[in-house]
Write a protein that binds this DNA or RNA. Structure first.
Lengths: 190, 190, 190, 190
DNA sequence: TATGAATGAGCCTTCATTCAT
DNA sequence: TATGAATGAAGGCTCATTCAT
């Protein structure tokens, strides 16, 4: 189905995120999402087969947007640490500033809503990050361990840190960001 | 009359965990939990005020059990790295082997079901871990940063690693465990 | 889309009355009401927030309808006794012939379902009757006592009489109606 | 079944009345009644077959107690009006002062809980009142109409008046009582 | 007999989805 | 295509009644 009105899809996506942030994935009913998006409930079904598809598409969309965000302004020709730092900072900022998206991805990824295909698709989107890690290994600046483990070492702390900020238990500033980065870098550096 | 039955509470807790693992926190209906536990729906309400209380009590119970597990066999009089490694290993094993519990805590902590009090109580239970980190800082073996950040650096990778194992994307062995530990240790060590 | 349907509201109101008559206010479940009205249970909630609102609106509606009925064909320019008789007869007939409505009002008024606001609203609707009593007092044809007492003297016997008819212990005819009226008139006349 | 403990039955009856007054006939659950009476839920079933029987027996008990109350201190050898006034006053006082009982009888009589037998039994208990009315007719002091109608003319206003008092819309004093009595007397007198 | 835990049908309400307009 | 009323299967919870102790 080729939606006529991209702006409407956009509004639906945004309403979905807002509602999930407010009332959680289960509390975000189709009626609430529709109202928030300024359309009728039935209209949701013009653009999406059902709630599952709405969430899945939103997930893929956010995930690919996120990865694009991660590699934004990546100074590819700079020394590795500089490049990595840029990407890491993008990841942290994305998770902190766009908490809705980050939280949704985390929630959805572990939810029963996600299907195997969507999960796999999400992984595929991470390719650019893997490429970055591979470069680091080639240059012998990053430990030679499974990318999945490196990823765990990088994302894990970011998720937890963003959560701390969201809970109000931590306020970020340059010094703290530097500390967190240093910890992660020490964690993965060869 | 029949006395309240501890074994029954136990069965309810276990059924709850199983169901949440299978169908998520929202999908785990009181009826499903009851059936799984082998009791009538109404019986759940003999032991718990409502679903919220059931989940909250289960959370606190698991969390305190987890922390107890974390500090189990802790060789308190050994050098710090040895002690920390023991605790870290306990944490990893808990999250990997008792995936139901780990997954529930993560889901519940981020869900709309949790109340502020329960969240605070959960934090309070972490006191022993904070004590361990404090010792590390006193001995100048651990970076002098906020415990919350250290905790993010330690738990984040553990959660992600356990998730990888659960998804079948990673199989743990001594070598990999050693790699992961080394990454975390390098991350937090002074 | 389907517009909200007045006939449906009507059907719901009627089904509610029927069910309350059959099984009482507590026995009249939303499901029964819906079935009787020929709609799905959920449809009730399109028209009414909840059971309380359904009953409250029905109450106000019936009460105002009843009062309108009471003063119907009131020969306002006739001597007081004629006017009063007309109104009294309307009241009796309403309570006898439209037993469902009468019974519902009585039950609801004394139930725990009714709220203070609705009770007050119900009283307000009685204004025309009070006006009639006031005229009687002005013309010194009616005792100068509190309207509430007069009302008790008028309505009380009507309710009881209607109940007798409903139970089959009494059949009304002109002579009996005359007797009952005379008793009430003697009761309130100056 | 011959209950051992009359005091317990008494406590149950009183608790039932209290609960019905507080939360209505439907809200008065067996568990609440039991708790209020200071016994276990199951104990109710030692003394009563089920809720229906509990209510029915309570009804008959109250009704007969009420009638006994009505004819209390009846100066049988006095002039009719004196005697009638005494009985009428007893009725009014019972309905006003023992509102729980009065309200319960009214509620129960019109509820779906009551069976034909109980209703008939209730009527039978009214025999003394009918005797009083019959005497009035013999002495040609009371209109020669069906006792049921006389009863409607007497009880109806009493119920309504008691309700007014209960709602706080009326406070009784000697003057008002006199007014109300006069209205009723004028209503039934020959 | 007394207790209160256990039962499960049933209650009110919600909500993903359908469908008449 | 867009609307939102209509649907009915659950969901959380209650409660009369039963039953093990």
């Amino acid at each position: 189905m080729r939606p006529k009105d991209d702006a409407k899809v956009e509004a639906i996506y945004e309403a979905t995120l807002r509602q999930i942030d407010e009332v959680g994935i289960a509390g975000a009913t189709m009626a609430r999402i529709a109202r928030d998006a300024g359309v009728a409930t039935g209209t949701l079904y013009t653009y999406f087969e059902n709630k599952h598809e709405l969430l899945s598409k939103l997930y893929v969309r956010i995930k690919s947007g996120a990865v694009a965000e991660f590699v934004r302004d990546m100074p590819a020709d700079q020394p590795y640490r500089i490049v990595f730092r840029r990407v890491w900072l993008n990841m942290l900022q994305f998770n902190v500033q766009r908490h809705l998206e980050g939280t949704f991805m985390a929630q959805f990824y572990r939810s029963t809503y996600i299907s195997e295909e969507v999960r796999a698709e999400g992984l595929r989107l991470f390719q650019p990050i893997n490429a970055l890690l591979d470069r680091g290994k080639r240059e012998q600046l990053v430990r030679d361990v499974d990318n999945a483990l490196l990823h765990a070492a990088i994302s894990g702390p970011i998720y937890e840190t963003a959560q701390l900020v969201h809970e109000g238990r931590l306020t970020l500033n340059d010094e703290i960001i530097e500390q967190v980065f240093q910890m992660t870098w020490d964690s993965i550096k060869a």
